[in-house]
Design a protein around this nucleic acid. Structure first.
Length: 190
DNA sequence: GCGACAG
DNA sequence: ATCTTGTCGC
């Protein structure tokens, strides 16, 4: 698939009473660099946070938010890992597999795998390996700023996950879809 | 036993 | 993730 023109970005947070997982799904037009729709989803929290099992805690709310979008995006960007996961199925991969949609994992920190420090320039990327095989990259999305851990979620390869992530960045560390989703869900919790 | 550990 | 103020830099 070529570079998506219509992205969706998702991110989760928690209600103040700690009983629900909240999530925002932002439909974002890359050509116009603008959000077309923002939806909020909610689901009761039934699972604790366990590294490696994040999907069980956050996916229900994420799915509820995505269901409210008026259109199906070409690809979904997630604030989590894709296949750079102990079992090869981080939240982004899990979500894509379930929805049968291309997804990318754009995590802010490392869960597993090894990588060198990438050069400081925007777009610099170094391979992220797990058990000797490359599963993603550590990508600099902003000059001299903490890099992102990018890996394919579903229906895309490493090169595409990087190209798509950069295609959705607009000067901030996080790609616009997930950055806006983070703002939206943060506002939603009051 | 010790350290690591997405959000 | 969430709890929290000011502060340094573009």
């Amino acid at each position: 698939m070529k570079t998506p023109g219509l992205f969706a970005g998702v991110d989760a947070a928690f209600s103040r009473d700690g009983r629900f997982a909240l999530a925002a799904a932002v439909l974002w037009d890359a050509l116009e660099s603008k959000a077309l729709h923002i939806a909020i989803g909610r689901a009761p929290l039934r699972f604790p946070y366990i590294p490696g099992l994040l999907s069980f805690r956050e996916l229900p709310a994420v799915l509820a938010a995505l269901r409210k979008l008026p259109q199906t995006p070409d690809a979904v960007l997630c604030d989590a890992q894709g296949i750079c996961h102990p079992r090869g199925i981080g939240l982004a991969a899990h979500l894509g597999l379930w929805l049968d949609l291309p997804t990318v994992g754009c995590a802010k920190s490392r869960l597993c795998g090894e990588a060198e420090e990438p050069p400081l320039g925007v777009g610099a990327a170094v391979p992220m390996t797990l058990r000797g095989v490359q599963v993603g990259v550590v990508l600099r999305t902003r000059r001299a700023v903490r890099p992102l851990y990018v890996s394919p979620g579903h229906l895309c390869d490493i090169a595409q996950s990087v190209a798509w992530t950069l295609a959705a960045c607009r000067g901030f560390r996080l790609p616009e879809p997930t950055r806006l989703a983070h703002q939206a869900v943060t506002r939603a919790r009051g």
